[in-house]
Amino acid sequence: MGPRSQEPIIRVKGLNVGFGSKRVLMDLDLDVPPGQVTGFVGGSGQGKSVLTRAILGLLPKQSGTIEVFAENIDRLSPAERRALERRWGVMFQGGALFSALTVKQNIQAPMREYLKLSQPVMDELALLKIKLVGLPPDAAEKFPSELSGGMVKRAALARALALDPELLFLDEPTSGLDPIGAAEFDDLIATLRATLGLSVFMVTHDLDSLYSICDTIAALADGKVIAVGSLSTMLASDHPWLRTYFHGKRARSIVAPDHAAMGAQS
């Protein structure tokens, strides 16, 4: 994989984003370490998606700098920008698969755009991605409208992986999946991280995912990142929102058994 620099793969400094008079992100700072799975949590409407969209360049920002792969995304020429976009893969919450294309064509869309590969090899690679994300081979020829919710997620991940990106953005990857499917999805992301040296930036609410695959967790509240660190840091934090989040009823199953026992007694 070559030497991994410890330079953060995403560095956000003093980011301000707002809509009209409403400010969503206020002087937000965030460093995402490379080669790790970073889970990003926050209450609904706190701006998790806004931050993700700002990093991806889908939302204008009022001020602040965003660096991805140690490059300031505002200072890139259109060609450099395209080269950068090729190095990341994005999986949207609803999948955002192109509804007029089959799953296979969806996966091949970025390959066609950026690479010159022969059709048989593109077909093989698309089928490989389909296998990697755990879809049955016959899903290749299906249209997104013919897929179940879980299959749409997997197909969207396959498309995000089409160019073997270095950085993967996942927006609520396990929402809408059954617990078994969600666990498989977590394993899949862990495997991909291990094999591809992938950095993953994952917006999630799934406590199991946070527990099982996230190396780092960042929490967003009131337009700022209130804590960054491992799960144990989060559990030890006494910020009221984090306490509710990680020690609430739904969190009991993931924290260590003694925590759970304490929770049951109180």
Binding site: M111, L115, K116, L117, S118, L163, D164
Partner: peptide, 10 residues
């Protein structure tokens, strides 16, 4: 041996 080599890889 990565996909960015495109046709060269093939």
């Amino acid at each position: 041996w990565t996909i960015s080599a495109s046709r060269t890889l093939e």
